[in-house]
């Protein structure tokens, strides 16, 4: 009796597992920055009724690409989101696992803002000042020393006479990566000594430019951007680093800082004037198109004008759209499943 039930259970579970392998639902993994956009499209796609709502996992850009590149077959995801471009090393890893046919779709921009509470004065900084305020080591009189600046006015007398206190994401976050790459590195390049270092020893330059101070002026506030917003409201003296969509949603309580003379507004970011913005992507596994139903239709939905266009519903979610010409080109490439070319 017991043997019989056990046997039945095993047969049943194998049958179910076999059934689950033939998937009728798109599976998406990847960046937590693209997650709000990807899920919005997934939901819209599902309510149209022809296909099931895709399952979207938030694994981070790197984690998503790792899963994506693990192989071809329905146990692997069909699409991965990324808040940065795929790396050459990742393309190679993909190819080694048989994932050769990849389509890249750029969906728009995301700005990273330095913001503070409305109760305080708006901030105006240059990338150089951001680097001076947050780097672990800064050049003073041509020599690298541990960051001596405690107050903003120590960096530049025109800045307020308040303690440097910046809340930001931890190193595991894609926002942090982009911030370090765009703002910190951009600021570091403004120093002649570091610029020279960059030419002679790129690695050494990066280790200086990417190191954020650990003496309490920069506070790691966790992955949750909402938390940073709440802390900023409670503490008007502090600055916070997070994605533009959170500024967009909380514009009555916090204000975005001007960086390099440009305000972080929708228009400035989409024109490319604002200095700390990055492109968002998703990647489609060509081998799964036609095997898992709905992938082509999902890509078409994502790249339709109603979705990622200037007045599409993703802009309501905080996505900053590409230019019209770019959109048309990307739509054409995406719907024809053009293969990824690394440049």
């Amino acid at each position: 009796m017991l043997n019989k039930t056990l046997g039945l259970a095993i047969v049943a579970s194998v049958a179910f597992a076999g059934q689950a392998l033939a998937r009728d639902q798109i599976r998406i993994v990847g960046s937590s920055t693209v997650f709000p956009f990807s899920t919005a499209v997934a939901e819209e796609f599902g309510t149209k009724g022809t296909f099931k709502t895709p399952v979207v996992e938030s694994t981070g850009s790197g984690g998503g690409l790792k899963l994506f590149c693990a192989g071809v077959g329905t146990e692997h995801p069909d699409i991965t989101n990324a808040s940065r471009r795929i790396k050459v090393s990742e393309v190679e890893k993909c190819a080694a696992a048989g994932v050769t046919d990849i389509t890249e779709v750029k969906i728009g921009f995301d700005g990273i803002v330095l913001a503070n509470s409305k109760a305080a004065k708006p901030v105006e900084l240059t990338k150089k000042q951001i680097f001076q305020a947050l780097a672990k080591q800064v050049p003073v009189d041509g020599k690298l020393v541990d960051n001596p600046y405690q107050k903003w006015s120590d960096i530049d007398p025109s800045l307020p006479d308040t303690k440097i206190e910046v809340l930001g994401p931890p190193p595991t976050s894609g926002t942090r990566d982009a911030f370090v790459e765009l703002a910190m590195e951009g600021g570091a390049k403004k120093f002649d000594t570091l610029k020279a270092l960059r030419k002679s020893d790129k690695k050494a330059f990066k280790s200086v430019a990417h190191a954020i101070r650990e003496d309490g002026a920069f506070i790691e506030a966790g992955e949750n951007d909402n938390l940073i917003v709440q802390k900023l409201v409670a503490n008007p003296a502090a600055l916070g680093i997070f994605g533009f969509s959170f500024l967009d949603q909380n514009a009555d309580r916090i204000q975005g800082g001007v960086v390099g003379g440009v305000e972080p507004t929708f228009e400035n970011i989409s024109k490319g004037d604002y200095g700390i913005s990055r492109s968002l992507y998703f990647y489609v596994k060509g081998a799964h198109v036609g095997k898992v139903p709905g992938i082509e239709e999902f890509v078409a939905e994502f790249t339709s004008e109603d979705t990622f266009g200037e007045f599409g519903y993703l802009t309501d979610k905080g996505l900053i759209p590409l230019s019209e010409a770019d959109r048309a080109k990307i739509r054409a490439d995406a719907t024809s499943m053009a293969k990824l070319k690394m440049m």
Binding site: F16, A17, Q19, A20, Q25, V29, F35, S38, T39, A42, E43, G46, K52, T53, V55, V56, E57, S58, T59
Partner: peptide
């Protein structure tokens, strides 16, 4: 194991996402 995900449909069994 992939359960931190956006899933709009109500799961119908132990094999559904």
């Amino acid at each position: 194991i992939g359960m931190v995900a956006f899933i709009a449909d109500i799961p119908g069994g132990v094999f559904d996402p």
